[in-house]
Design a protein around this nucleic acid. Structure first.
Lengths: 99, 99
DNA sequence: TTCATATTTCCAATATAATGGAAATATCAA
DNA sequence: TTGATATTTCCATTATATTGGAAATATGAA
């Protein structure tokens, strides 16, 4: 993972509504939730929710699939694990591993 | 950890220079680095570096101590671990643990 | 003291992000 | 087809963040 990619993912998560969308989808697992369900759940206009879902998807944190008229979003755990690894990479290596 | 606190920490990390400051300090361990060393390392004016260090500190990601005329900044690992735990809390609990 | 060094605060200019109504696109059912 | 539902794109408004020079503050040394 490169710095710019990590910044993109962190920026996507660094917003109250988006962080809660992501955390809800983390709980939901592979089942995920439809865009409309999410706007209902957070009482947010569809256009605003769509903007947030695009931000999270472009950052690689969500994946989506179409199911009939709905678009189902779910968390991308693998990408999240890579991000978390990047954040603490080589922890304390310049201090003999002493944190 | 509450959502607003997590958003604050993510916002602090969601900026290229600050993310690299944090990652450098993660590598440096308890020894840390002085503000001036950091502005030299990244070739950034002192005022700008000071602003970034304040953002990271207020978010709880850095701690600082004075050593003579210098102020030494270092990473706050404990706070970071709490943040990472918050991000994946109750992973897949609504899907029978199936991720 | 007085001077040099280290860092922060102030502030105004610039840049980037969030919001949501209206219109456009996609899917399905009658 | 036509109509209903689901979602996205467009775009203007509003809000928030970043930058760095100049001035202020803090420390230590002569």
């Amino acid at each position: 993972m490169k710095t710019k990619e990590a910044v993109g993912a962190l920026q996507a998560l660094a917003q109250e509504t988006r962080l809660e969308i992501f955390r809800l989808l983390v709980r939901k697992g592979t089942g995920g939730m439809a865009a409309g369900e999410l706007s209902g759940h957070f009482a947010i206009p569809a256009a605003t929710m769509s903007f947030h879902l695009k931000e999270l998807s472009q950052a690689g944190l969500l994946v989506s699939r179409r199911e009939s008229r709905s678009i189902i979003y779910s968390a991308n755990y693998e990408h999240m694990q890579v991000l978390l690894g990047f954040l603490l990479e080589n922890c304390c290596s310049d201090n003999g591993g002493k944190c």
